[in-house]
Design a protein around this nucleic acid. Structure first.
Lengths: 167, 167
DNA sequence: CCTTATTTGTTCAAGTTTCAAGGATGGGCC
DNA sequence: GGCCCATCCTTGAAACTTGAACAAATAAGG
């Protein structure tokens, strides 16, 4: 028996190595940048801002907790804490679900909407400045395709998922 | 005087919007994925793992704290905590700097190197599986260029930086 | 020298995220 | 109904991150 990894793993080529490093650096810097920008201008980190965005696009500006967690790609636990915080800020409010007594809706408040409306321009500008303004239209297109592919590959397999949705 | 934002901001086009969403989703899922993979196989999150990697590539496997922070794109504060944790694991050791009595070196221990060597294959496989195996060679190339550009744009301007290096 | 400014790394407090556990409801099945 | 198990969401503790404040040491100017 040989349980130890017998074969040499397929290491990254030099170019892949460089690409991967560049990706890690860029994504780290970008997330930091946006977190700071939003913390300063909106009083919340990027993940929280994103939650408000997702809510703002939902019908009646409300979503079930699980649905919101899935759309935002975060765990339910994390969402629970996050909503608690946003609730304290008055930007989100919880509402019981009539059909399912286990359920909770997260609802974007008017106040939350205002914060969003106020900080959106700055956020868009930051994103534009960091990414789109620097890329050619071919690159922009390419980036979209690539990220789409990567995201799909990591998406918890739907239907019969062996994961209780995202672990 | 008109301090309020007078002009309609340049919103993202629909395609840019989609691209940005795809990016956020992909990067979120990817970072989560790697964090879990490494937490499971190496007992540390991705950032910490990256610190070991950077150290392993430095001459004599050691770097000044600030230098390490810069290469890893994290704050000194965060690094301080991280090294404390890694030190507790016996994977990194601190050493005083002879030239500059304020200075500290973070040194990768043999034990740290072993952990790295052991977990590297799994990590590479995860990265490959999530990204490179899914992309065409054109896309791989494109991704590298794009991320390079984005990273450069966010890099704290060197020389005369008005930032105390990353705030 | 002597004073002032900068750099280096740490620490504290507050905030966030993760993980494991748990309470409650819903649904299927006999 | 009664039982079992899945789903919905929350909780608490531990780990991690952040930003500001800080002490020590060095660099820069006069």
């Amino acid at each position: 028996m040989n349980t130890a990894p017998a074969e040499e793993p397929r290491w990254l080529t030099d170019e892949e190595q460089r690409t991967w490093r560049a990706y890690v650096h860029a994504s780290t810097l970008l997330e930091d940048h946006l977190d700071r920008q939003l913390q300063r201008d909106a009083g919340m980190p990027h993940v929280y801002y994103h939650l408000l965005v997702v809510l703002s696009e939902a019908p009646r500006r409300r979503l079930r907790m699980t649905e919101l967690a899935m759309r935002a790609k975060i765990t339910r636990s994390r969402l629970s804490h996050a909503v608690a915080r946003l609730e304290k800020n008055g930007w989100v409010r919880r509402e019981d679900c009539a059909d399912d007594k286990r359920g909770q809706f997260a609802v974007l408040t008017d106040q939350g909407y205002d914060v969003l409306a106020q900080s959106a321009p700055g956020h868009v500008q930051a994103v534009r400045q960091a990414i789109f303004d620097r890329l050619s239209s071919e690159q922009r297109e390419s980036l979209g395709e690539i990220m789409q592919i990567v995201a799909e590959g990591l998406q918890p397999k739907e239907a019969g998922a062996d994961l209780p949705w995202l672990r």
